[in-house]
Design a protein around this nucleic acid. Sequence first.
RNA 1: GGGUCUGUAGCUCAGCUGGUUAGAGCGCUCGCCUGAUAAGCGGGAGGUCCCUGGUUCGAGUCCAGGCAGGCCCA
Length: 1054
Amino acid sequence: MKRYEKLEKDPVARELEILELWQRTDAFGESLRQTENGPRYVFYEGPPTANGRPHFGHLMPRVYKDLFPRYKTMQGHYVVRKGGWDTHGLPVELEVEKEIGVNSKPEIESYGVERFVQKCKESVWRYKAEWERLIRRMGFWIDLENAYVTYTDDYIESVWWELATMFERGLLYQGHKTLPYCPRCGTGLSSHEVAQGYKVVEDPSVFLRMPIVSDAASVYKLDGGVRTSLLTWTTTPWTLPANVALAMAANEAYVEVEQGSERLVLAKALMERALVGDARIVREMPGRDLLGVLYEPPYRLTSDAAAYQVYSAGFVNMDDGTGIVHIACAFGEDDYRLGQEEGLPFVQPVDLGGRFTEEFPLCAGQFVKDADPVVVADLKNRGLLYRSMPYEHDYPFCWRCDTPLLYYAMDSWYIRTTEFKDRMIEENEGISWYPSHVGEGRLGDFLENLKDWALSRDRYWGTPLNLWVCEECGTVSAVKSRADLVARATDPERARTVELHRPYVDAITLRCEACGGVARRVRYVIDTWFDSGSMHTAQWHYPFENEDRFRDSFPADFICEAMEQTRGWFYTLLATATILHGEAPYRNCMATGLGLDENGLKMSKSKGNVLDPWTYIDRFGADCIRWYLFSSSAPWKSKRIGEAAVQEPLYKFLDTVRNTYDFFALYATIDGYDPDVHPAREASFSILDRWIRSRLQTATRDVVTALDAYDVVSAAAALEAFVDDLSNWYVRLSRRRFWRGGMGEDKAAAYGTLREALLVLSRLLAPFVPFLAEAVYQPLRAGGDPESVHLCAYPAVDEDSVDSALESEMQLARSIAALGHQARNQAQVKVRQPLAHVVIASPGDVALRAEVQELIERELNVRRVDVVKDLGAYLTEAAAPNFRSIGPRLGASGPKAAAWIKGQSASALRNALATGSVTVAIGGETVEIRPEDVTYTVSLSEGYVQAETGSDRLLLDTRIDEDLRRQGLFREVVHRIQVARKDAGFDVTDRIRLAYETDDALGAILAQHEEEIAAEVLAVSVKHDMKGKHEYSQTIELDEGRRVAIGLTRMQDA
RNA sequence: GGGUCUGUAGCUCAGCUGGUUAGAGCGCUCGCCUGAUAAGCGGGAGGUCCCUGGUUCGAGUCCAGGCAGGCCCA
């Protein structure tokens, strides 16, 4: 005989068992093997860095990254899920710096680059085990054994191939990148680091004169023979020696003002704030008129003809200063770009230590910030200083050593991504984004303002930039593979085995193909984002091997990561693929929101509010967290991670599924139910069976439709609705079918239906909550079924089995039941008390078939249900006099008329007055009754109460006659005995001996129903006195002071 | 400063192309039901739908301008 065990109640224990099952049977591996010949569905793993501990936020994209591959696998697709690890980059270096106690490049050099790099390599695996444990425990099926690792020589070789390809196509070039630079540490800082170190400081703010020396090339002409200067402004006086130009806004209004013996030019909008004392406006002109004006700079460090004149620039604003911006290409990003566009000279009188060089003798050797007062004093002496004052603003400092950062134009290699801007925009339009605004807005906007990609980093731990420069002739060439390196190396043997990292690869020199000289590698490594952005190609070590695998898995059908990857991984994948393969590397891209703490703040290390995922996994289980994330709100919405919220799905949804199964298991075991021995016959399906079978189809349709549109919340909502229907309607109303003895046709139909519903449900749930789905599936599966629910086919809708008429009838029945309970509640009549009659008025054309009406009768415990279009028959309309109208007109006759109106039947009177007034004789008087003299009130017929919602109304007949009263009493007693059984701790199936004693009247009623009572409470014998011993006894108090003493004794097992 | 999202009950969120009295879940409270359930059902309390204008017969919904918060980028 088949036994169905109840499921383990503790979700954590249950999930651990399932994990073991999967491991034992290699379920994941099997799911791949069995789909190997199916159509591909390509997924790319965005690689995490394992040098940090995983936190709750990391789970958010991962649940979707698991859901869709599982779903597609069950639909027969072959979904390769190669894991990946991102391993290079500055964050890793910083961790190691902290560990070994250094914090600058010179210190790293003296520590030894080789030792340092080895430390980095170890560091990236620090939390690998943690990550793997988490991924496995959450039921995320991904191939970690064959994960790609960005630091391997194979991966680097593929990246080299990409870079060399770009180089050969002329897409790599050398330029300057302006970045916040720490002169003490000798390194540029990432924006993330800069953000940590802003402080409010006071700097000198100076306004100074740049005398105009020539108007030959401009529309503007000098006038009056007075000294005329352009007024400019800066908060970094030390950059003035590097001045090479001034920039103005072409379309803004500028004025020339006279003040004392001189004239000054500045923006009209800033006049008030910039000038001191009275000034007379001489003339006004747009900025464009001044373009080409030559001026005398404070320090003339170049003789370049392009220098020291006025240019137009879009970044000039009217917020502060004078609207005339001092340009030093070496010390500002905008400045540098303008310099590139206009061909300005690059004046750089400051060394990498932040000290002035001999190029600027006044301050040579001095740290730039210390030079500020020297420069200001010098300008003052020479009469160039118009005004100087302290200025408070935010300025970045090095977060490590507190040195003020300098914006410094550093040598850098770039990828000419701007050349592919239009292609990328076009490709982006072909990608389906979830949500759409990430693609259209966030990334779209970024692409519109695309800049070239600054690729190189002057660091140690990263993919080395594969460019070698000849020491003799300066020829630059790119190495495109290990073989290429060996072929061109001066020491081929060494090149064959050298690790492709600094410092090892730096030692490899090449023979210059142009001149035969010695070529050395540039010192840079590349931006780590290029590593991960290359995974579409490098994960397969393409083009050196796996050509077929690469072709089969490009582009991806689906990727998903956190929102902040938009300009990170989402962009770098798009950029590299568009350049190299001419196509976007993914078709559907989902961005997830942030994990917030209970106060709605972003989780971050610095705030100390990061949540360890294990705190919830170990209490509520993986499925609970998964379902919480799927069902609570759209993927891209930020989620507050609070205990109550995360826990909710456990009892609300998952336990409902478990209990529905447990219900089945309880009775199926009692009855020895076996689907093979007790097949369900379609002809025996009850209305409930047919209904839930139809719901199974519509739920499947809803889930599949939603998932195909990547709409996870709707899919989850459809499943929740189905589980509610199954548990709280199908099972609830079907309970009596399972209680009956034996195994009749109807019972077999009920078992068959419930079993099938649970099996289909387990498959529907499998991608969402893989553990619970498996737990439900395992005990139910038949001999020929797959070993795991995850090896089953995902349900497909069978439209022919949908009975929408029945579904909407049942919908109505459920709302009628709700109304009925409401009416009973209002009338204070318990459901246990049978009532005679309920009337429903529904404007819809839904006619309830007899079987559905029966369900309602049972649910509401009424003898008869009537569905009518019009409730008229149950309403009493009464006519009432309207004294406002009668009083003034009839005076003393009023009361008589009123009495007469009250005496009339409302409908007769309404008919009589339909065409106008009537004249009647009342006690010898003739009185005119007008329509407005009568008001009509509608009231329910005696004994009825009403409940309504929206368009439906329900009337409940609350009159209880003697027969109903007896029925109610009997049911009450049965109920009390059942409660007593439970209190006594008896098992559901225990047979008992029942004894009771009560007054004569009640005794007579009970005697009448004795057989029913015995059947209901599983009594094999009934005694009418309390003599003898009872295992459990109690006195029941009923209404009106009636009492029944009962005694229960269990029968020994036969 | 630019882009973008969000603002609805104590909390978490629904409210489709504008259409009666703004909903659900959790929590609170009163009652019911219970031979599966940590469940279910019903009643109640709880809302200036962030603010201000505008369009419209009608605005939580559309438009404009603010305010607040978040994120990405400067």
